[in-house]
Structures are given as C-alpha cells and as structure tokens.
Design a protein around this nucleic acid. Structure first.
Length: 566
RNA sequence: GAUUCGUUAGCUCAGCUGGUAGAGCACAUCCCUUUUAAGGAUGGGGUCCUGGGUUCGAACCCCAGACGAAUCACCA
C-alpha cells in the first residue's frame, strides 16, 4: 500500500510524462563542476553545470531557493520564473518545477554563479533537467545554527538496512567510508613500497584452516564435495613463502559462523602478511612503523580519539610478555604452573573455567578477564602459551611459550603475529594436539591440513607473519563504536517483505479480480481468513474501503459476497 | 541465550490517573521576487507492532508473541 506521499509522487511522475518529459533519460549528462569547486573558488557570473539531488526547496512566488546535493557537498540554487521561462509559457516553472518536482529528485542544473543578498554563494538557474524522479520521500534531517540536528535519521536498523538513504541524508557517514578506503590505500602503499607482493588466495577452501573458528559450509555440485568459506588465509600465504616469494600479503575477506555484535560481523576483512627470514621481533617494529605511517598519512597525526580515550600510535609501542602481564594484573606467576595449579589459580581470582579447557585456554581466560581490557595505548603482548598457538614457532628460550604477539589497542585485539612454525614434524604434532582438543569438546579446534604439512616438508624459510583486523583499525581511526558503522552493508536479519495476495486462491472462489486487493488490504490476507469472517462484515468493510480509497468500481452487493462463501 | 528499554502520521517524537489520537518537519491548496532548521493561511494523512485478557471504556493496565536497541554471555 502506497503512502499518500508516494501516491502523489507517482501522480506527478505521470504528469511529467504527459507533459512530454522523460523522467528517466538515458543520455550522459555532462557537468562542469562539483558543488565544492564552486564554493571554494567563487567567480561571480561563471557559467556552471552541476548535477545532484534536490534536497531543499522553498518556493516564494516567482522565485525559489533550493539545495543540490552532489557527491562532494551541497550548494544553493536560485530559480526565477522569468529566467527559466523567458517566453509567455510559464509551465516549466509553475507546473514542472513547483508542482511535479519533489525533494530527492535528481536534477541537472545550468546557471551562473552569484552571491545572494545574505552572502551565500548560489547558482542562478538558467535551465534545469530532470535526470531521475524520486518516488519515495527521504527523511529530512535539519541542522540548525547551533549544529543541533533535528528530525535525524537515527534508527540504526533503518540506517544499516537502507544505507543508501543513510549516505544521502547523514553527511558524516560518507566521510567514514571515504576514510576507510584511505586507510586501506595507505596500508597498501606502505606494503607495496617495500616490494611485498599482493596476492589472492582461495576463499572457497576444502579445509578451513589458519584459525580456530566455526566456518560456513557450502557445497560444490560438480565435484560433489563440501567447501568452506575461509576463516583465514594463513596457510595459503605460507605455501607461497615455500614457493619462494619473500613477502606476500592479502587484504582478505574472512567468514566466521559465530555470534554477531558491535565488534563482530560474520564477514570481515583482515590484512595478512608473511615475510621470509624475519621473526616476530622484526614484525613488531614493522607493525609500529606501518600504523604510525597510516595515522600520519590519513589523519595527519598519531593522536587518535577513541571514545573517551586518547590513543597515541607513535612508535615505539609498549611490549610486555603475557606472563608478566598476568603477574602485573593479578599478582600470580603462572610461569611454572601445571594445568591443575592453573585451574586452582583461576578459581582463586574468580575466573570461570570448564573441563574442556586446556592449559593454554586457561591462561587465555585469565588474560582475557583480568588484563586485556586495561591496554588502552597500543601494547604488544608477547610470548603466548604453546597450546593456544598451533601455527606458531616455540619460543627460542622457553618451549612452553611461543614467539607470538598480539597488539592490543583500547582494550581490544588489533593484530596478531608469529614467528611462523616451519618445522613440519612439530607442526604435525601440534595439529594432532588440536584433534585431541576437538575430541575433548572444543568445537573450534583446528582441522589437520596434510597438504600444508607437505608444503612445510619441502622447506619453508624462517618467516614472520601478521594479521591485522581492518574493520577494527577503521573503527579506531574513525572513532566509531561499532563494526556496523564501518561496514557499508553489515549483516542483518533478512527483511520481511509484504508479498501481496495469492491471487489464484481468491480467483478459485470466484472473486472478481478488482476486489482482490481491497480484500487483502482489508485484512483478509488469505482465502481461509476471508471465509472465516462474517459475509456481512466483509461486505461492509469492502464498501468502506471502496469509499475511502475512492475506487472507480461499483459497490459490491451482499449477494455477491455471499456467493463467494458457497 | 539472559536482562533492561523500546515500537504512535512519510521523518523526529509528545501523549498525565484508563475517558473524542497530538506537535514540528514533510505533503496538498492558496498568497508571496533573496530564504538560512521552520515566510503566511488552510487542509489531508493513523492496523497507536500483533494476538488475547481485564474494563462501561485500553495507545495507556495484565498475559503471550514479533521486531529492534543497549548491556552481558558466546566469539584465542
């Protein structure tokens, strides 16, 4: 059912067509300027052609003001009847402009630049062209002179579902996504300048490896095998290091079939990089360099406001081992504890544990509960327990630990890196440990990838690898509190659509076609619902609907309604 | 999955102790040649999320459900 305003717009559309104007012309529209060019470089009397959406219109007799929104901003346009219609025929102004155009229509404007009496740079319109008619009214947020937004389009659900409306109506939203692209470009520049090779690896994988997470499963018909959407690309990038590339990276969409909240979306972007002959110490320096570079290039500063915190991405970042961090925050020294002792320690400080947790998971629980949140400034947490990191090389000084770091920012994990495990025998044993964990009930334990082991058997140089969450980085640098704000189209529950009446079932009981919509709109959405109702009530409702909607069909007779019920 | 809050016009929101559904913007008609969130006048527009219940009477109270948001849990 169309709203009154939608119906009015459709009527205007018909009048425009009847007037002889195509509301959806095909031809290229050549424009000479963006709004911002005109505003920043004012030349009185300059002839300009612009294109954009009509966002404001104020008719004042023979003169009118409007605003045109293009991809770079807004500019005011001034319509004068006798300029637009120099001859006797004033219909272009009186009818077409004043009556048949609506806010949201996309126009091409030809005119001359001038300043109004109040001093606003505007375009005095000579000619305007309808480039596309808008049939649905946009929300109309307005900003007053104190910067307060009235009638904002704020409902997060509507904003995400109708991102196109959000982008039109809420200026800062566009900025976030422009910045997102700048951040990615800046990272790519940094990496390619260092001669690393950007590559693409499979998204459909037969074994979802490289991380611990539940995958999405799909099926390949021709091969008749299950395929998984990747949860990570790590194992493929390492195969390329085996193949002899010294440095490879990929901006990768990964998919994890897990919960959604303001920091998790089922599909998300990671940048992973692997560099031969390096270790995790080198990678820490590299990561600092990269983040400092990006901040300076995109923001012009390393000082970033995140919520109420001020975070500084200037290197060097603090480095602390996980053991020291736990000692610092809980006073407990876990360095020589057995699994049993760890369990006890967890209980003593109120960290909940379950039987399926191994030693590594216990330590991680403590860290997650007691330490993680306190690292606001960029901090490298290093040397994770070996059980948690099945793809990571054992620490050179302590076989219980691994050469791994995570970069914490604002209490969240931003990046994760290893000195990569390149010993195929050790790797096989670690995978087997994972299988045992899976049997114990850990549904996120890793799958064994025998081809990856085989690749390592051919020999992989010592390598360091790092993955960084692009969505989180963008959240930080744009000071956005949720991942939905930095994804153009965040995952949403499917929308329910009104499907309309099933016409054939109504036709079956001899209902005339012109009455089907009124019956449906009156609440009798199925044949069953209709036949459950009282014929007299149906009769009255339908004629009421006819009157209200001024239908151009004869009123239905009670006998006719009764005949449907036979 | 748990808790809390919410769902009223196209948009943003009021709606008192249960008593005839409201405002601003948007829209329509008319007037107006320079307005800066809203020029003037007039007008149209509602499944008060859905379904039950209580009541003479429900947007409002009760029960159930749908949808959404926040927080928590889950997610190295």
């Amino acid at each position: 059912m169309l709203s009154e305003q939608e119906q009015i717009r459709r009527d205007s559309l018909q009048k425009i067509i009847d007037y002889g104007i195509n509301p959806y012309p095909a031809a290229e529209f050549k424009f000479s300027h963006y709004s911002i060019d005109i505003l920043e470089n004012f030349k009185e009397g300059e002839k300009v052609i612009i294109a954009g959406r009509l966002m404001r219109r104020k008719i004042q007799g023979k003169a009118s003001f409007g605003s045109i929104l293009d991809s770079k901003g807004k500019i005011q346009v001034y319509f004068n009847r006798d300029v637009i219609c120099p001859s006797e025929d004033k219909s272009m102004y009186n009818d077409f402009f004043k009556k048949w155009l609506d806010l949201g229509d996309i126009l091409g404007i030809e005119g001359k630049v001038f300043k109004t009496m109040v001093g606003e740079i505007s375009i005095n319109v000579d000619k305007f062209h309808l480039l596309s008619k808008s049939l649905k009214p946009l929300p109309q947020p307005k900003t007053d002179n104190q910067g307060i937004i009235h009638d904002g389009f704020n409902d997060p659900e509507l904003r995400y579902r109708r991102r196109y409306v959000d982008l039109v109506v809420n200026e800062n939203v566009k900025e976030t996504f422009i910045k997102r692209t700048k951040i990615i470009n800046s990272m790519r520049n940094f990496l390619s300048k260092k001669d690393f090779l950007e590559v693409e690896t499979p998204i459909l994988q037969t074994i979802p490896g490289g991380a611990a997470a539940k995958p999405f499963i799909t099926h390949h018909n021709a091969l008749d095998v299950p395929l998984y959407l990747r949860i990570a690309n790590e194992l493929y990038l390492k195969r390329l290091i085996v193949g002899g590339f010294d440095g490879v990276y990929e901006f990768a969409k990964d998919f994890r079939n897990e919960g959604m909240d303001r920091t998790h979306n089922p599909e998300f972007t990671q940048m992973e990089i692997y560099v031969a002959y390096k270790d995790y110490q080198w990678m820490m320096n590299f990561t600092e360099d990269m983040l400092e570079f990006i901040c300076n290039e995109v923001l012009g500063t390393t000082q970033v406001k995140i919520g109420n915190e001020k975070v500084n991405f200037k290197k060097p970042f603090r480095r602390i081992s996980m053991t020291d961090s736990i000692l610092e925050h809980t006073g407990i020294d876990i360095s020589n504890m057995s699994e049993k002792e760890l369990r006890k320690a967890c209980k003593s400080i109120g960290v909940e544990v379950s039987d399926s947790m191994g030693k590594g998971k216990l330590i991680d629980e403590i860290f997650g509960e007691k330490c993680e949140g306190s690292y606001i400034q960029p901090t490298f947490i290093t040397d994770y327990p070996v059980e948690m990191s099945p793809l990571c090389k054992k620490h050179r000084d302590n076989p219980e630990l691994t050469e791994r770091f995570e970069l914490m920012v604002n209490g969240k994990e931003l990046a994760n890196a290893y000195s990569e495990l390149n010993d195929p025998i050790d790797q096989k044993e670690r995978f087997e440990e994972q299988v045992k964990l899976a049997e114990k009930g850990d549904d996120e334990a890793m799958f064994i990838d025998l081809d990856f082991i085989r690749a390592l058997e051919y020999g992989m140089p010592p390598t360091s690898g790092m993955g960084i969450g692009i969505d989180r980085l963008v959240m930080f640098l744009c000071n956005q509190p949720s991942i939905q704000e930095v994804l153009l189209f965040p995952q949403m529950k499917p929308e329910k659509w009104e499907t309309g009446p099933n016409k054939s079932e109504f036709l079956e009981i001899n209902i005339p076609p012109q009455w089907i919509i009124p019956i449906y709109e009156s609440g009798y959405t199925t044949k069953e619902l209709l036949l459950e109702a009282k014929p007299t009530a149906v009769h009255q409702k339908l004629n009421g609907y006819r009157k209200k909607n001024k239908l151009d069909i004869p009123a239905v007779l009670l006998e006719e309604v009764l005949s449907w019920f036979k």
